[in-house]
Simulated scan of single mutants.
Amino acid sequence: MKRYLADTLAMIVFSTVCGAFIEIVIAGLSIDQSMRIRIAAIPIILFAGRPYGLYRDWIFKLLGGNGNQVGELKSTVIDTFANFSFQITLYLILLFINGATIEQALKAGGSIVVFLIISGRPYGIFLNGCRKLFGVNSN
């Protein structure tokens, strides 16, 4: 249960702050659209937070240990790959469900690609911090 809470809280906090910034500042969605997307994301995150944590842990094990046992460059590459490959589809679905136009989805999706690449390692570090806060380790 602690792992579920840590992984889910990390994803809610990180995606809410970063997602709203991208949606409003870069993609030009209204604050109302962004709020609806962020609220709609919470139930998805409740189901996706822990599976993402498991997926990330699996990728780390598959490619060389866990986040604490591999070098920083390898951790960055693995976190970037895990973050991008898991998140992009969920994000685009949320945009369309909540009324984003194709143009807005392309802008937000294009922006999120860059964001997912840039944020992969920071999110991994944030996730590890949340896990530590909850007294669980990355596997």
Score class of each variant (00 low, 15 high):
Lys2Tyr: 02
Lys2Gln: 14
Lys2Leu: 13
Leu5Ala: 15
Asp7Gln: 08
Ala10Arg: 05
Ala10Trp: 00
Val13His: 02
Phe14Gly: 10
Ser15Phe: 12
Ser15Met: 14
Ser15Gly: 14
Thr16Cys: 06
Val17Tyr: 01
Val17Asn: 10
Cys18Ser: 15
Cys18Gln: 12
Gly19Thr: 02
Gly19Arg: 00
Gly19Phe: 03
Phe21His: 00
Ile24Gly: 06
Ile26His: 08
Gly28Ile: 04
Leu29Cys: 11
Ser30Thr: 13
Gln33Glu: 15
Ser34Arg: 05
Ser34Cys: 05
Met35Ala: 15
Met35Ile: 10
Ile45Gly: 05
Ile45Arg: 05
Ile45Tyr: 03
Leu54Ser: 12
Tyr55Lys: 01
Asp57Glu: 15
Asp57Val: 04
Asp57Ser: 10
Ile59Glu: 02
Phe60Leu: 07
Leu62Phe: 01
Gly64Glu: 08
Gly65Asp: 12
Gly65Leu: 05
Gly67Tyr: 06
Asn68Lys: 09
Asn68Ile: 01
Gln69Glu: 15
Leu73Lys: 08
Leu73Ile: 07
Lys74Trp: 05
Val77Cys: 13
Ile78Tyr: 02
Asp79Cys: 11
Ala82Glu: 04
Ser85Glu: 03
Phe86Lys: 03
Thr89Asp: 07
Tyr91Pro: 00
Leu92Gly: 12
Leu94His: 02
Phe96Val: 10
Ile97His: 01
Ala100Asn: 03
Thr101Val: 09
Thr101Met: 04
Thr101Gly: 15
Thr101Phe: 06
Thr101Tyr: 00
Ile102Cys: 11
Ile102Lys: 08
Glu103Phe: 09
Leu106Cys: 08
Lys107Gly: 07
Ala108Gly: 07
Ala108Arg: 03
Gly109His: 07
Gly110Cys: 08
Val113Pro: 00
Phe115Lys: 05
Phe115Tyr: 15
Phe115Arg: 03
Phe115Gly: 13
Ser119Ala: 15
Gly120Gln: 01
Gly124Lys: 01
Phe126Val: 10
Phe126Lys: 04
Leu127Met: 03
Cys130Gln: 08
Cys130Thr: 08
Arg131His: 02
Lys132Asp: 13
Lys132Val: 11
Leu133Glu: 13
Leu133Gly: 10
Asn139Thr: 10
